[in-house]
Each structure stands twice: as structure tokens, then as C-alpha cells.
Design a protein around this nucleic acid. Sequence first.
DNA 1: AGCATTTGCGTAAGCCTTTTCGCAAACCAA
DNA 2: TTGGTTTGCGAAAAGGCTTACGCAAATGCT
Lengths: 342, 342
Amino acid sequence: MASLKEVAQRANVSLATASRVLSASTHSSARYSQATRQAVVNASQELGYKPNLPARALASGRSNIVAVVYPRVLTSPFSAPFVMKLIEHIERVCSEHGFHVLLSAPRIEESQPEESYLKLINSGYLDGIICIDSFQSSSLLAHTLESGLPAIITGTEDCLVHIDETAGAYELAKHVLALGHRDIGFIGVPDELNHRAQVRFEGFQRALDEVGLELPDLPREDGDFSLSSGEQAAHTLLAHHPELTVIMALNDFMAVGAYRAARNLKRLIPDDLVVTGYDDMPIATELVPSLTTVHQPIDQLGERLASKLIDLIEGKEPPQEALTTTLQVRESTSFVQELMPS
Amino acid sequence: MASLKEVAQRANVSLATASRVLSASTHSSARYSQATRQAVVNASQELGYKPNLPARALASGRSNIVAVVYPRVLTSPFSAPFVMKLIEHIERVCSEHGFHVLLSAPRIEESQPEESYLKLINSGYLDGIICIDSFQSSSLLAHTLESGLPAIITGTEDCLVHIDETAGAYELAKHVLALGHRDIGFIGVPDELNHRAQVRFEGFQRALDEVGLELPDLPREDGDFSLSSGEQAAHTLLAHHPELTVIMALNDFMAVGAYRAARNLKRLIPDDLVVTGYDDMPIATELVPSLTTVHQPIDQLGERLASKLIDLIEGKEPPQEALTTTLQVRESTSFVQELMPS
DNA sequence: AGCATTTGCGTAAGCCTTTTCGCAAACCAA
DNA sequence: TTGGTTTGCGAAAAGGCTTACGCAAATGCT
């Protein structure tokens, strides 16, 4: 690879000048004539010069790499579609701003992120971090913040960008209540497992308040976000509370589990049992019946996370922001089910 | 951050020795006594020393970063579950070997990968590249290989690791034929769009050979892997060829599209119409009826890609390898459909 | 004991940039 | 003209690490 030195020689300028031209540094010392500029640019193109990024990082202290981090707490297949979309948009925005994206999925050992992660965040390789963490693995956050790097977290409330999931849950529950249902069972996850669980239930409670119901009085079973756990939970719920006319699951996967349980118990959705999910995963529309759920603006979230991180890196102070969900009413809560051909 | 120099001072050794101890270089010059070793290790721990990776990369020429590249030809939501799983496993294996994973989704402009990608691969940031490309964007491959970096491609036949999709398609078609079906329609994608299309159809042809049928004689409509394109294609197929008893779609999404079309046309699956997919995406089991498809060993693929790349980086010459698919027979090709509760 | 080898470690060169500092020339105002 | 400012550029110091080279001491061999 041609080095900057060779470019400088070919253009008959000093190393410093070549650097100034090619790094397009908006710095105070970035002064050069148009003629020099052309000479350097030509030389650079003729030689096919590509800057050596490690050298640049070493000298400038900036690597143009940001890391996207999500802890490998579960093998978490459930979060995959969510995370992937997020990353897709983060990568897009970052690359548009000249940043590369490094992926890291640190394991947490004895409530400490593994050593290699600690090395990474102090390695000088990173200009910033986007931490996707709804698992309250505070140790991760603590270490990440401690590194002093610009970091942006998502997954909890008090972060620079978050999705207002409470509002989404509120609307969803309100929709169900408006249909006249009062015998509602919930499929959740242990509160301490996931922050999302708490905020969604808050939304449910808010809607229940309006009709004088209390969440703790209603039946609830917990799963772990997986389909099978949802099926299990739904079975338990319906066994103990056959009077239930609604099952609200904390995510779509568990809702699909509830579909299975319902089929098994010969309860037709939505006639005999209404089911709702959360997340609006791509196949939610393809289920039979299609699933009423809450759509999350993942694309927006990814974009905002990236652009706010870049702001942070550039020394700006981006304001806090909340994104809003949209309720998706589909067949699983409607009384007019599209008939299967008989 | 404490630098190596400080560690060396604290341990009363030279910079060189400290480096030798801490970089655990298996190099010939890596000679030191156990006593020195301890001193250095202690000093390093006391100071919380983390090596500066850009500096190391600059000096050694190795960055410990590998890139996972997939061209952004379509926004390709369809490939997301596939790619995500792949990346998950690649990241795992890489991080176990001390490599970081950088993600790059270069756009292709005028059949050239965008400039920033070319910069990246010549930047010194990368020790190797895993290129996921079933789109024949040969320009990407050409440039990637030209960089001289260890690179490993997947998506076409002649690469170090690939999935034997032909065999999978063969088994699938054989299964359908064994059920007695001869009126088969196909939902494909334009051959030139995607290499996978070709190899899968080869498998179909091989099975058809055995019963004296020719693929070109059978009806075929092309989509673009998306659900809606599959629905469209199935509609066309069934309109022109109402005698069809089977629709074989080239992937699961288009198969789900065929489900939709069937429902619309009041053809019950599998009684009135058999449908097959390919890929075995997670919800294939959850559809009603569940979808007969071909499972791809994505996990294995990810692992192999990563470990072969690392071999390559370390100067070994990993052998070529093919992974095998498994046929998943489910309700959509079975005559005993689980009944919906009525 | 004498020689050859190995072991353990330090010196210093180098990796390729960025960036501070400073100088000369060119410009400006009075 | 003179003094001050701006412009354009070069010399050289960093930045933190690896590694080739070389030397002394320890070891092995006969």
C-alpha cells in the first residue's frame, strides 16, 4: 500500500501538507492553496492511496469505529429479529457518517463482563458504544460508562432514546377493555429479568385503572419470552381460570404459544379467546388469525441511536427522546374472523 | 490509560520484555524467565494495563479484527434471520479466538462497491474478511480478493464452506414425488438474481429425472423471495394451471405467500394443495398447517466460516467442506392434517 | 576446561499518521 | 514604508507498540 509519504513525495509537498489535504481536517491548521490541494489529490489517486487506519487512530486518538454491544445473557433467539433490524439501521447511519461498526456480544461471568470486553473498551479501538441492554445487566453498563467513552444505552427508561412501551401497552389494554372484556389473564416474564416487562405492565395497569381493575387481582403466569414458555403459561392460565376471555402476552412469541394452547384446548381465537402480543414481529400478520399487537419503531430507534452517538462523539449534547409505538389491531381481537375455506 | 512503558518501569524491565510477556507472542524472540514474567504480569495488573490496539496493529500489522461483509443489494429483510444467526455464530467463534468482528454492508454503485468499502479493506484495520454473498455481485468478490487479505466467501459452490442445497432440494422433491404428485408448480426467483436459485432447481431436476419429468415442462413463476411476491406467483400459477396439486416455493417466505393465495382460492393445504418451502425459518413450525421445508445448518455454517478464516489468517490451508441440509416433513405435505377445532 | 549453543533481556529502529510549532511570504491598514 | 495579520507550508515530535539485532550470562557438550 502506498503510504502518505509516497503521496507527499510525488506531489512535491511535505508529509504534513499531504496529511492536511487528505484528512480534510477542518482543523485550524488546515490551510493550503488550491494548487497544492490538486497536486496532492492527484498524486493520491494515481497511487491509489488509502489511509492506514490504525496509524491514523494512533496519531489522532480517533478510530472511526463504534461498537454495538449486546450482552449474551441468553442465546436469545427471540430478540434476534429485533436486534438485527436495529443493527441494520445503526450500520447504515454510521457508515454514512464514516464510522465502522464493530459487534460485540460479551458474556457476563459472575456478574462481570468478560475480560476481553473490558480490554476492548479500553483499547483505543472505539470512538463510542451503543449498548443494547434490556436485561439490567448493570455491570455491563457500569463498566461501559466507566470507560469514559461516549456511550448510548437503550433498553431502559432514562436513556437518550427509548421507545415508550408503556403507552403502547396502555393502548393495547384499552383496546381489549373497549371490546368489553374483563376476564383477562397475562403472560409475563419475571420482572427482574427484563426491564421491558415492568414498563409494559405499567401500561396495562394504567388502562385497567380506568375501569377500576387492579393488575395484581388478575391471573398472571410468567414465561421467558419463548414460544414454548408461552404455551405452557397459557395452559396453566386456562386450566386455573377457564373463565378467561383474553390472554395478553408480553411478546408475540409467547402469544403464538397461547395460540397453540388454545388450539389444543379447542378454544377458537378470537371467538372463544382473545389473544394479544407485543412487538409486531414480521409474521404477526401471517398467523391465522393474524395477531393484534403493538408495533415498535425499530428502524427509527436504530437511526436515532446511531445519530445521537455520533453527536456525542462530536461533542454535541443530543436531547433525550422517546419514540412512540403503534397499536396494530388484527383478527385475534376481532369478532369477525376471516373464515377458513371449509 | 497506563501504557506499556509504565508497566515496564514498574516491573523494572525494558519495554521489549514487557511487550514479549504481555503479547504472549509465540515468536522466536519470546524468551523470558518465569520471575520476569511474574513481575510484568503483576505490574500490568496493578496498573490495569490494557494494550492499545491501534498501536499494536500499526506495529505488528495485525489488527485482530475481521469483517463480515454482505452487500446491501436489497434491503433484504428476508435474509435477516439467516444472516443474523450466521453473524451470531461467527462472532462467538471469533471472539473465542481473540478476534473482533466488524460489520460492513457496502452498497454496490454502478457495479462497484462503494469507495468507503475499498478504503476499509485496504486500511490495515482488517485481518480477514468473511463475505456473505449469494447475489453474484462479482465486483464485490473481485475487490475483496484483490485486497490480498485472507478472505472466505460463502454463497456459491466453489467456496471453502458451503451448504449443499442441491441435495436438500433433491430430497424435498423426492418426498413430494413419493407422495404420488406429478402436477407440480414452482415459485422461483430469476436465476441470475441469486445463485441459490440455480442450485436448488438442480436438486429438483435431479429428483424429477428419476420419474421421467423435465423441469422446463412444468409451470414456474418467479418472485423475489418476498412473501407478497410468492402470493402473486402462486395466484398466477393456480390461475393458469388449476390442475396443480403441489407448489414448491424456493424459500419459506414465498411458501407463506402461497398459503395466502391458497386460502384466497379456497384450496385447503395439504388436502387440495401441497406446499413446500426452503430454509426452515423459525416460524415454519407455527404456521397452520406447519410447513414442510429444508433445514439449513446455519449455526454450523457460521462456525465453520469463522474457524476457517482464522485458519487462513494463521497461515493454514483449511480444506473445502460442504454442509448438509435436513428435510423437515410437516403438515403442509401430509394428508393427515391436524384439525382446527370447529 | 574450552567451545558452542541457548537463554534472557536491553537498545533502538520502525510502523504511518496527526499535529504543534514556527517560519517565510503575502497581504492589509495607516 | 512599517508593523501586524493571515496564509501556506515544512520540520519534527509524538502516539504506543512490536521486533530485529546484539550482547552477556547461563547452560550443554566433550
